[in-house]
Protein backbone atom coordinates (compact mmCIF):
# COMPACT_ATOMS: atom_id res chain seq x y z
CA UNK A 1 0.00 0.00 0.00
CA UNK A 2 2.91 2.29 0.82
CA UNK A 3 6.55 1.99 -0.18
CA UNK A 4 8.87 4.71 1.04
CA UNK A 5 12.65 4.77 0.62
CA UNK A 6 14.91 7.42 2.05
CA UNK A 7 12.21 10.07 2.46
CA UNK A 8 13.53 13.51 3.34
CA UNK A 9 11.74 16.73 4.10
CA UNK A 10 13.50 19.87 5.26
CA UNK A 11 12.31 23.22 6.52
CA UNK A 12 15.21 25.38 5.43
CA UNK A 13 18.33 23.58 6.58
CA UNK A 14 16.54 21.68 9.35
CA UNK A 15 15.48 18.19 8.37
CA UNK A 16 12.07 17.26 9.77
CA UNK A 17 12.11 13.87 8.09
CA UNK A 18 15.56 12.49 7.48
CA UNK A 19 15.79 9.30 5.45
CA UNK A 20 12.71 7.30 6.40
CA UNK A 21 12.01 3.84 4.94
CA UNK A 22 8.49 2.51 5.46
CA UNK A 23 6.47 -0.34 3.98
CA UNK A 24 2.82 -0.97 4.55
CA UNK A 25 1.05 -4.18 3.55
CA UNK A 26 -2.70 -4.54 2.97
CA UNK A 27 -4.52 -5.00 6.26
CA UNK A 28 -1.65 -3.53 8.25
CA UNK A 29 -2.22 -0.77 10.79
CA UNK A 30 0.85 1.12 11.91
CA UNK A 31 1.05 3.38 14.93
CA UNK A 32 3.52 6.19 14.33
CA UNK A 33 4.89 7.61 17.57
CA UNK A 34 7.58 10.01 18.68
CA UNK A 35 8.18 13.15 20.68
CA UNK A 36 6.99 16.58 19.54
CA UNK A 37 8.94 17.66 16.48
CA UNK A 38 10.11 14.12 15.69
CA UNK A 39 8.60 14.44 12.21
CA UNK A 40 5.44 12.32 12.62
CA UNK A 41 2.99 14.80 11.19
CA UNK A 42 5.30 15.80 8.36
CA UNK A 43 5.75 12.15 7.42
CA UNK A 44 1.98 11.66 7.50
CA UNK A 45 1.44 14.73 5.33
CA UNK A 46 3.99 13.33 2.92
CA UNK A 47 2.07 10.06 2.70
CA UNK A 48 -1.11 12.11 2.19
CA UNK A 49 0.57 13.84 -0.82
CA UNK A 50 0.30 17.22 0.93
CA UNK A 51 4.04 17.64 1.27
CA UNK A 52 6.44 16.87 -1.54
CA UNK A 53 9.45 14.73 -0.57
CA UNK A 54 12.74 16.60 -0.93
CA UNK A 55 14.54 13.35 -1.57
CA UNK A 56 13.78 9.66 -1.68
CA UNK A 57 11.06 7.73 -3.46
CA UNK A 58 7.46 7.28 -2.40
CA UNK A 59 4.75 5.04 -3.81
CA UNK A 60 1.25 5.27 -2.39
CA UNK A 61 -1.38 2.75 -3.47
CA UNK A 62 0.83 1.87 -6.43
CA UNK A 63 1.19 5.46 -7.62
CA UNK A 64 4.49 7.32 -7.65
CA UNK A 65 4.43 10.55 -5.63
CA UNK A 66 4.42 13.39 -6.59
CA UNK A 67 3.99 12.60 -10.31
CA UNK A 68 0.85 10.47 -9.97
CA UNK A 69 -0.38 12.11 -6.77
CA UNK A 70 -3.89 12.71 -8.03
CA UNK A 71 -4.47 9.02 -8.77
CA UNK A 72 -3.23 8.16 -5.27
CA UNK A 73 -5.50 10.77 -3.67
CA UNK A 74 -8.66 8.95 -4.77
CA UNK A 75 -7.75 6.15 -2.35
CA UNK A 76 -6.48 8.20 0.59
CA UNK A 77 -8.57 9.08 3.62
CA UNK A 78 -6.96 11.80 5.73
CA UNK A 79 -8.07 12.78 9.22
CA UNK A 80 -6.19 15.83 10.48
CA UNK A 81 -6.22 17.88 13.68
CA UNK A 82 -8.61 20.23 11.94
CA UNK A 83 -11.86 18.71 10.71
CA UNK A 84 -11.31 20.22 7.23
CA UNK A 85 -14.93 21.26 6.87
CA UNK A 86 -16.49 24.69 6.30
CA UNK A 87 -18.01 26.14 9.47
CA UNK A 88 -20.73 28.02 7.59
CA UNK A 89 -21.98 25.05 5.60
CA UNK A 90 -24.25 22.40 7.07
CA UNK A 91 -22.92 18.93 7.78
CA UNK A 92 -24.70 17.60 4.73
CA UNK A 93 -23.50 20.42 2.45
CA UNK A 94 -19.91 19.74 3.50
CA UNK A 95 -20.24 16.07 2.68
CA UNK A 96 -21.95 16.89 -0.63
CA UNK A 97 -18.99 19.06 -1.56
CA UNK A 98 -16.49 16.32 -0.76
CA UNK A 99 -18.69 13.70 -2.44
CA UNK A 100 -18.50 15.74 -5.65
CA UNK A 101 -14.76 16.36 -5.31
CA UNK A 102 -14.17 12.60 -4.99
CA UNK A 103 -16.77 11.72 -7.62
CA UNK A 104 -18.75 9.47 -5.27
CA UNK A 105 -21.41 7.82 -7.43
CA UNK A 106 -24.06 7.13 -4.75
CA UNK A 107 -23.39 10.45 -3.04
CA UNK A 108 -26.70 11.19 -1.33
CA UNK A 109 -27.38 7.66 -0.06
CA UNK A 110 -23.80 7.35 1.15
CA UNK A 111 -24.02 10.67 3.01
CA UNK A 112 -27.26 9.70 4.73
CA UNK A 113 -25.72 6.38 5.81
CA UNK A 114 -22.56 7.96 7.13
CA UNK A 115 -24.32 10.77 8.99
CA UNK A 116 -26.40 8.13 10.69
CA UNK A 117 -23.32 6.05 11.33
CA UNK A 118 -21.44 8.84 13.14
CA UNK A 119 -24.56 9.93 15.03
CA UNK A 120 -25.11 13.24 13.25
CA UNK A 121 -28.31 12.40 11.38
CA UNK A 122 -30.40 14.80 13.47
CA UNK A 123 -27.88 17.63 13.04
CA UNK A 124 -27.39 17.10 9.30
CA UNK A 125 -28.98 20.43 8.34
CA UNK A 126 -27.19 22.52 10.98
CA UNK A 127 -24.08 24.55 10.18
CA UNK A 128 -20.85 23.16 11.57
CA UNK A 129 -20.33 26.41 13.47
CA UNK A 130 -22.99 25.18 15.94
CA UNK A 131 -21.17 21.87 16.52
CA UNK A 132 -19.00 20.90 19.47
CA UNK A 133 -15.40 19.93 18.75
CA UNK A 134 -16.21 16.24 19.09
CA UNK A 135 -19.16 16.51 16.72
CA UNK A 136 -17.10 18.38 14.13
CA UNK A 137 -14.48 15.67 14.36
CA UNK A 138 -17.14 12.97 13.89
CA UNK A 139 -18.21 14.84 10.77
CA UNK A 140 -14.55 14.78 9.72
CA UNK A 141 -14.61 11.01 10.23
CA UNK A 142 -17.58 10.77 7.88
CA UNK A 143 -15.77 13.06 5.44
CA UNK A 144 -12.74 10.79 5.52
CA UNK A 145 -14.74 7.61 4.91
CA UNK A 146 -17.05 9.09 2.26
CA UNK A 147 -15.13 7.89 -0.80
CA UNK A 148 -14.27 4.47 0.69
CA UNK A 149 -10.51 5.06 0.95
CA UNK A 150 -8.09 2.13 1.00
CA UNK A 151 -5.39 3.93 2.96
CA UNK A 152 -6.36 5.74 6.18
CA UNK A 153 -3.99 8.41 7.44
CA UNK A 154 -4.91 9.62 10.90
CA UNK A 155 -3.22 12.43 12.83
CA UNK A 156 -3.79 11.87 16.56
CA UNK A 157 -7.40 10.83 16.00
CA UNK A 158 -8.09 9.86 19.62
CA UNK A 159 -7.01 13.25 20.93
CA UNK A 160 -9.83 15.11 19.23
CA UNK A 161 -12.61 12.55 18.82
CA UNK A 162 -15.17 12.08 21.57
CA UNK A 163 -15.88 8.62 22.99
CA UNK A 164 -18.55 7.77 20.43
CA UNK A 165 -16.32 8.90 17.59
CA UNK A 166 -13.34 6.97 18.93
CA UNK A 167 -15.42 3.79 19.14
CA UNK A 168 -16.58 4.27 15.58
CA UNK A 169 -12.98 4.79 14.43
CA UNK A 170 -11.79 1.66 16.27
CA UNK A 171 -14.49 -0.37 14.54
CA UNK A 172 -13.38 1.04 11.20
CA UNK A 173 -9.76 0.14 11.89
CA UNK A 174 -10.74 -3.43 12.76
CA UNK A 175 -12.76 -3.64 9.56
CA UNK A 176 -9.73 -2.28 7.69
CA UNK A 177 -7.60 -5.16 8.95
CA UNK A 178 -10.22 -7.67 7.79
CA UNK A 179 -10.76 -6.30 4.30
CA UNK A 180 -7.17 -5.49 3.41
CA UNK A 181 -7.06 -1.74 3.79
CA UNK A 182 -4.16 -0.10 5.61
CA UNK A 183 -3.81 2.65 8.18
CA UNK A 184 -1.15 4.91 9.66
CA UNK A 185 -2.07 6.36 13.04
CA UNK A 186 0.06 9.17 14.39
CA UNK A 187 -0.17 9.14 18.16
CA UNK A 188 1.24 10.37 21.43
CA UNK A 189 -0.54 7.64 23.34
CA UNK A 190 0.86 4.27 22.34
CA UNK A 191 -1.15 2.40 24.98
CA UNK A 192 -4.42 3.80 23.60
CA UNK A 193 -3.56 2.85 20.02
CA UNK A 194 -2.11 -0.56 20.89
CA UNK A 195 -5.52 -2.23 20.70
CA UNK A 196 -6.08 -1.19 17.06
CA UNK A 197 -2.54 -1.18 15.64
CA UNK A 198 -0.45 -4.15 14.56
CA UNK A 199 2.90 -2.45 14.40
CA UNK A 200 4.71 0.42 16.05
CA UNK A 201 7.13 2.78 14.35
CA UNK A 202 8.92 5.34 16.50
CA UNK A 203 10.57 8.42 15.03
CA UNK A 204 13.23 10.53 16.64
CA UNK A 205 14.73 13.61 14.94
CA UNK A 206 13.21 12.52 11.65
CA UNK A 207 14.63 9.00 11.71
CA UNK A 208 13.02 5.62 12.40
CA UNK A 209 14.49 4.36 15.66
CA UNK A 210 12.09 1.46 16.27
CA UNK A 211 9.92 -0.65 13.98
CA UNK A 212 8.36 -3.59 15.76
CA UNK A 213 5.15 -5.67 15.96
CA UNK A 214 2.84 -4.37 18.70
CA UNK A 215 2.92 -7.75 20.49
CA UNK A 216 6.65 -7.53 21.31
CA UNK A 217 6.37 -4.20 22.99
CA UNK A 218 7.51 -3.05 26.40
CA UNK A 219 6.02 0.40 27.08
CA UNK A 220 9.16 1.45 28.97
CA UNK A 221 11.26 0.91 25.83
CA UNK A 222 9.02 3.28 23.93
CA UNK A 223 9.42 5.97 26.55
CA UNK A 224 13.19 5.68 26.43
CA UNK A 225 13.20 5.84 22.65
CA UNK A 226 11.20 9.06 22.74
CA UNK A 227 13.73 10.77 24.86
CA UNK A 228 16.80 9.26 23.28
CA UNK A 229 18.19 7.83 26.52
CA UNK A 230 19.70 4.43 25.78
CA UNK A 231 17.61 1.55 27.20
Amino acid sequence: MVTARGLVHAYGERRAVDGVDLDLAPGERVALAGANGAGKSTLLRMLATLVRPKAGTLTVLGHAIPDAARAARTGIGYLAHDPLVYLDLTARQNLELYGDLYGVADRDARITDLLDDVGLAVRAEDTVRTFSRGMAQRLALARMLLHRPRLLLLDEPHASLDAAGADRLDRELDAARDDGRAAVIVTHDVERVARVADRLVVLRAGRVVLDTPMGDLDPMDVRRLYTGVAP
Binding site: L50, Y78, A80, D82, L84, V85, Y86, D88, L101, Y102
Partner: peptide, 18 residues
Protein backbone atom coordinates in the same frame (compact mmCIF):
# COMPACT_ATOMS: atom_id res chain seq x y z
CA UNK B 1 -10.38 33.56 3.55
CA UNK B 2 -12.77 30.73 4.47
CA UNK B 3 -10.20 28.10 3.53
CA UNK B 4 -7.45 29.83 5.48
CA UNK B 5 -9.32 30.91 8.61
CA UNK B 6 -11.27 27.68 8.97
CA UNK B 7 -8.24 25.67 7.85
CA UNK B 8 -10.03 23.69 5.16
CA UNK B 9 -7.46 23.99 2.41
CA UNK B 10 -5.79 20.65 3.19
CA UNK B 11 -9.14 18.97 2.70
CA UNK B 12 -9.37 20.34 -0.84
CA UNK B 13 -5.73 19.58 -1.57
CA UNK B 14 -5.88 15.99 -0.37
CA UNK B 15 -8.88 15.36 -2.63
CA UNK B 16 -8.18 14.34 -6.23
CA UNK B 17 -8.94 17.81 -7.59
CA UNK B 18 -6.71 19.12 -10.37
Amino acid sequence: VAEREQRVLDGLLVAPVP
